[in-house]
Structures are given as structure tokens and as C-alpha cells.
Design a protein around this nucleic acid. Structure first.
Lengths: 333, 333
DNA sequence: GTTCATTTCCAAAACGTTTTGGGAGAAGCG
DNA sequence: CGCTTCTCCCAAAACGTTTTGGAAATGAAC
């Protein structure tokens, strides 16, 4: 509405003084400060963001490129995670912009655009791959960033992750202890690191239990992907009596597939992520849940520290994964 | 990386000319333009966004306040809708920032902050209420905006909406025609206009069929809300044989509740929104689906036209809602 | 009364663009 | 040649803030 100059004029002060009064500098008398603050409140003065950004050489913005491959919709918890993240960034004056990748462009293009155009101070990366070109690019530019999920990059970077490997390993061993011998896995695309880690966790558990890791099928991390993968897995010569699913969405798709298969209602199932709908499926979905932290909040906190210049090595957090037993993991012939 | 001045110096031109060459003005010779473009490409020049914004008096940003009431998580389709919207805004050079409302602040506070601080050129509103103070505020400020869902505001504003009233009315009449006499409704909070319209649609259908609109329960538009409302509804003296649910999440919660109730597997159910998981529930969820438009894309398009100054009256779109028959609507005793 | 430190304020520069309002030179026209 | 019209370019202003480097006034110390 109004700007610094108008405010200063109306007060008979210089814009310098008004600016410094509002910014809390010590070199302005308490009396003037009060007068300025009162006038600013009254005028509803809000500093012009673009001007501040230009002067401060900060964009006050953080971007998160959103993969939008056709049919690859985002998991339902993304919006809440990003919302939490944005909320915590906001207290530091940073806003989160979502940057879906239009067809014809890559996520790398998005990063380039935002970074090279000084549109952002930092970036958040989700759905990281084992070898992630976005990570390499951002590291080469020296811009702060944090990823949701580890990568296999040589140079360390800030990330938060759940220990999916341990979670799947333990779940496999649990199944084995309960007497299951044919423990299958519905895997996500292997270039995604979360899918890779969950799969190697399953393999590790199987190996420890002295079992073979041959019962698996790969699908998209969606209901449809789980449905199709389950159908494929159950049509093989050896059928699993228990299945670990890479995500809850896949598990719910698998549950639906098993309903259509003779004896399918006897195979046990576990998902991962603990999406709200899982508690209301039939049977209620047993799943896994990252403990000890609000992901969005940690994402924001790590990013803020990365922006402050902290060493990425100190900005890596892996949280344990907890089993959420409901019904789907104890189905018996 | 580099700025206009450096680029101009290296070319022996003025920054004016370089700027105008890159912006495609006619008053620069083809030869120079080529030379400039080549040099800009080579230097990886990207104009500084803050500077451009300050000079142009445009923020190049659009914000969407995200309600984050405790336990009131966002529906899963939000992220895809907003992602689509952001993608279409991006081609016009606008980025979408998500602005979750921190506790202690209202959505109105968010609007104020963004609008009065010149942080945005326009706003997107979701989860509109019948009387929405955000709408009134934005109208008073004269800033362009579009809402997802109508309101009852006197002054017209841009919106996109599905015809939930008609959808629920028709669904009710369909149930009645199939012989149902006790047709219930799981309603969302009535201050939300979408919940209100769906409820009045159900009431209208009932009235046309000569039936009473007394079998309903109100709950949050979540799985838990649907679960609890269904339990309440089924514990009454008169039990419905068919239920219309305000949202798919509520329907899935209701499905779960009905499983725990004697004879619950005989009551028919219809949801609304067509969330991906609905196709994989047990039984697969019959639902309704807005036809004819990609909501996110329309949101963006209407907003762009609003920014261009079009009359809000011409920026109101209501799309028909289509029945998606799966299994849950034909369950019989 | 002079010197020095402290308090309180401000003019001006800077951030990197876009845009205004020409200006120099070439070309066209009589 | 004299005049006008194009073509191509540029200097300078502007956008609204933050920050630098003092300056004036006041008070303290001698």
C-alpha cells in the first residue's frame, strides 16, 4: 500500500531512520522507534518484498521440483510433508514454491532455471534416485539443498531418510520366524533409492534366514503398480505366503489383486509409509512408519542450517522405521 | 552468474540494447540481436528475478494458503491439482508458492501478509466456505484471485466448481428408483460450501422422491470422520440401506465402519472425488467425478484471465459431475 | 572552554533490471 | 543539397529497499 518514502515523509524522518527503526537497529531512539512503529502499524506498511530481495541479494524462496511423469502421481503424504516444511521455512522468512516439471523438460532443467536465475536461495529434492543428476548439479553450483531420501553421491549432502533397509530386513525376519518360507517382495523402480534400499533390506533378511530372494516383482509405486505386480508375482510357479510391499499404495493395490486370486486372502502383506487410508482398508493394512521426527519439519530445519553454511556431513539424518501391526500381516491359510 | 552490465561490457554495447535485444524489441538490428543472444547463451545469462520484479512491479508469484487445522489433512488430490495449476501458471512466468497457515494465524492473516507485502500478483483459494472472509478481503484489495469451489459472496468472483448439488441429487434419485427408501447422507462440515451443496443436492433428490431427509450424520471430510459418522448413523433407530458420502475419504472410512456392523455389508455406498485408492477398496468404491476439465489447468487459466483484468462474471465455471459405477453402490441384503 | 565519546539521525550508493525519451547517422525524396 | 523519415543505439531514471560512512547534537571528562 505505502512505501518507506511516504512513511518517512509523513513522520518528518529520513527513510534510513524509518527502515532502521523497523529493523530494530540500536541507533534509533526509543521514542522515535515507537513513533515509527505506531505509524507503520497504522498505515499497514509492509516492506516491498522484491525491493528487499534485490537489495539483500536473497530470493527468500525455496523451490521443490515435483516429478509429474504421466501416471506417476505424487503420494498422498507429499502435500502434508511439503506443507509442514513450508510452515517451518516461513518462520525464517522463506517461502516454498512448487515447481512441477512440464513435459519436455527435465527436473534438471527446473533446477537450472531456478538456480541460475537467482530465483531461489535453496532447493528441496524429493524422490531422489541412487544417482541423481539434480544433486550433482546443485553441488556444482554450491547452492544449499536438502533431499528427502539418501543418494549414492560421493560428495556428502544434507538429507533426511527413514531406515527402510532395516525396516524391511526386520519385517522379513519377522515373517521368517513366524514360519513363512516363501516371502515375496513388490519392489518399486530400482533407480529410486528408497525402493532400492527397501529391496536390499528384504534381500538381507532373506539371506539371514537362509532363504532365496527370488520371489519379487517390480511395479510403479502406485495402487495400479502394486495390483499388477501382485498379479504377476502370484502367477509364478512358486507363490509367496507373505509379501512385503515397497509402499502402502502398492500394498493396497496388491490387496485388491489378492481378492481376485484363489487363496489370495491367505497371503500376508505389509506396506510402508502408513498412509491414512491404510487403517481403513480390508483388512486394515499392517505397515511401517518413520519414527522420531516430522519429516517436513526436519527438511526445513536441515535446509536452514545448510543455508547458514553448516557442513553437509552434519546434516544427514536417518530415522528408524517402526512396525505398525494391523491385520494384513497375519493372514493364514 | 553474470548480469546485464557484464554482458553489455563484454559486447561493447549498452545494457539497454542488450536488454532489448533479449526481450525481442524491434529496435535492435538482426545482427546485434544474434550476437547478443549467442553471448547470453554462452554466458548462461539469466536475468535476476528480483530486479525484474522490482522494476516491473510484479511479484511473478501466486500463493495458495493451505488450511492445516490439526487432524484436517489435505485430500490426496490436492497436490496433483496444485501441481497441474503450477505447471500452467509457469508458462506465463508465474510460480506457485504454498502457504500453510501456522497455528495461531488465520488464513486471512496469510492473505494479508502476501497481498500487502506485494509478495504475490494473485491468489488461489481452496476449501472455500459459504461465507469466506478471505474472498471478502481479496475483493476489498482488488487483487485477482480464483477459488476452487463457489462461495455465497454477493460480489462475483472467479471460480471453478463441480456441480455437486446435481451429482448428489441424481445419485439420490437413482437410489430411490432402485427401490431404496432409507437413503442416508454422511455430510461434511456445513460451512464448507462443497459440503453444503452436496447435502442440499441429497435433500433435493429426497424431496423429489417424496422421502424424508432425516438420515444423516456430520463428520470431518476424512476417513476417520466417515468412520465415525457411519457408526453414528447406523446406530439410530432407522438405518439407511444406501448412503451418499460427501467425499471418497469419508466413504472409505464408512466402508470400514460398515464391516464392523451386523448387516453393514448390505448397505450401498457412493462417494465423491474419485480418488485413486477408491478403485482398489473392498468393494471397489462407486463414486462421482468432475468431467470436462482438468481442475488445476482451469484454475490457472481463470487466474491468468483475472490478472489480465477480465470481468469475474465471465470467469465462473461449473462442470457436471459424472457417476463412476463400481461395486459399492449395488449391495443388497 | 576544549576534547572526546555517545547518541541519534541522514544523504547517497547500491542491488540489476526495464523503460523513457531521445540522438546520431543512414537512407529516401524532392 | 535540404529536408524528412527510418534504423539502431544509448544515457539516465526509476522501482523500494538496505547499508555505508559519516554528521550534528548532546553529554562527559578534563
Amino acid at each position: 500500500m505505502s512505501n518507506l518514502k511516504q512513511l518517512a515523509n509523513s513522520l518528518g524522518l529520513s527513510i534510513t531512520t524509518v527502515s532502521r527503526a523497523l529493523d530494530g537497529y540500536a541507533d534509533v531512539s526509543p521514542a522515535t522507534r515507537l513513533r515509527v512503529e505506531e505509524a507503520a502499524r497504522l498505515a499497514g506498511y509492509q516492506p516491498n518484498a522484491s525491493a528487499r530481495r534485490l537489495r539483500r541479494q536473497r530470493a527468500e524462496l525455496v523451490a521443490v521440483p515435483l516429478p509429474s511423469a504421466p501416471g506417476q502421481i505424487s503420494p498422498p503424504y507429499f502435500i502434508d510433508m511439503l506443507s509442514d516444511c513450508a510452515e517451518h521455512l516461513a518462520v525464517a522468512g522463506l517461502n516454498l514454491v512448487i515447481a512441477p516439471v512440464p513435459r519436455g523438460k527435465s527436473e534438471l532443467d527446473m533446477c537450472r532455471r531456478f538456480v541460475d536465475g537467482h530465483r531461489v536461495d535453496a532447493m528441496v529434492l524429493v524422490r531422489t534416485k541412487r544417482h541423481d543428476e539434480r544433486v550433482e548439479f546443485l553441488q556444482s553450483r554450491g547452492i544449499p539443498f536438502v533431499t528427502h531420501g539418501r543418494t549414492e553421491a560421493q560428495t556428502p549432502h544434507a538429507f533426511i531418510d527413514g531406515d527402510g533397509h532395516a525396516g524391511f530386513r526386520e519385517a522379513t525376519l519377522r515373517f521368517a520366524k513366524e514360519g513363512h518360507v516363501h516371502i515375496g517382495h513388490l519392489a518399486g523402480p530400482r533407480d529410486y533409492n528408497f525402493a532400492h534400499l527397501r529391496r536390499t533390506g528384504w534381500e538381507a533378511g532373506l539371506s539371514e534366514a537362509g532363504l532365496n530372494a527370488d520371489l519379487f516383482a517390480v511395479g510403479d509405486p502406485t495402487e495400479r503398480g502394486g495390483y499388477e505386480a501382485a498379479k504377476a508375482l502370484m502367477s509364478g510357479a512358486h507363490k509367496p505366503t507373505a509379501i512385503l510391499c515397497c509402499t502402502d499404495e502398492m500394498a493396497i493395490g496388491a490387496l485388491s489383486a489378492l481378492r481376485e486370486i484363489e487363496g489370495g486372502d491367505a497371503v500376508s502383506l505389509i506396506g510402508h509409509d502408513d498412509v491414512p487410508m491404510g487403517a481403513y482398508s480390508d483388512p486394515p493394512l499392517s505397515t511401517m512408519h518413520m519414527t522420531g521426527a516430522n519429516v517436513g519439519e526436519r527438511l526445513a530445519s536441515l535446509l536452514l542450517r545448510a543455508i547458514a553454511g553448516e557442513d553437509p556431513v552434519t546434516l544427514q539424518e536417518i530415522y528408524p522405521v517402526e512396525f505398525v501391526p494391523r491385520e494384513s500381516h497375519r493372514r493364514r491359510p
